[in-house]
Simulated scan of single mutants.
Amino acid sequence: MRQFFVFIKCELGQTYDVAAALVDQVEEARQVHSISGAFDLLAHFSVDTDADIGRFVNQKVQTIPGIKDTQTILCFNAFTRDHGLGEG
């Protein structure tokens, strides 16, 4: 599985509606957080290893009503207590 995050800027007054739509309509959404700063939401997604992330964001995320802008962050490795460090 490939993990990535998307910062999402919403139209004014639409943040909670966008968050609900992501959770309800996008099966690959693992978590959606409201955040402070330049963006309104941070969404964590998990897709198949061979998935086209650009196409996924374009077709499944950016088409949700109320989304104004996105920025995608690709993940290379997850470092946690149970995996990611020193495993061969």
Rank of each mutant, 00 (worst) to 15 (best):
Q25F: 01
K60W: 05
S46D: 15
A21R: 04
T70I: 04
Q62V: 10
S34T: 12
L42N: 00
S34R: 12
E87C: 02
E87D: 10
A29S: 15
G54I: 04
V57I: 05
T63V: 12
G86E: 08
G37Q: 14
A43V: 02
E11G: 04
R2W: 03
L74A: 10
V61C: 03
Q62Y: 13
Q59L: 03
L85H: 10
F39I: 07
Q31H: 10
L41Q: 00
V26Y: 10
D48P: 15
V26K: 11
A21V: 00
Q71I: 01
F5V: 07
V57T: 07
D82Y: 14
K68F: 11
K68G: 02
R81P: 02
I8K: 04
F79H: 08
F39C: 01
L41T: 01
F7K: 09
Q14F: 00
T15Y: 09
D69M: 10
M1D: 11
I73R: 03
Q3K: 13
F39S: 07
Q25N: 13
A51M: 08
Q25E: 10
L22N: 03
T63M: 07
T15F: 04
L12Y: 15
V18E: 07
R30V: 09
D52Y: 13
D69G: 03
T63A: 05
R30F: 03
I64A: 03
Q3I: 15
H83F: 12
Q14H: 06
E87Q: 08
D24K: 14
S36H: 13
V23I: 05
Q62R: 15
V26L: 12
D50Q: 12
A51Y: 05
T49N: 15
C10W: 13
A78L: 06
V6E: 03
L42G: 04
D69P: 12
F45H: 11
I64G: 00
S34Y: 09
N77R: 06
G13V: 12
T63I: 11
F79K: 07
A43Q: 04
I35T: 13
G88N: 08
R55Q: 12
Q62P: 04
D52R: 13
L74T: 15
F79C: 06
H83T: 03
A29M: 15
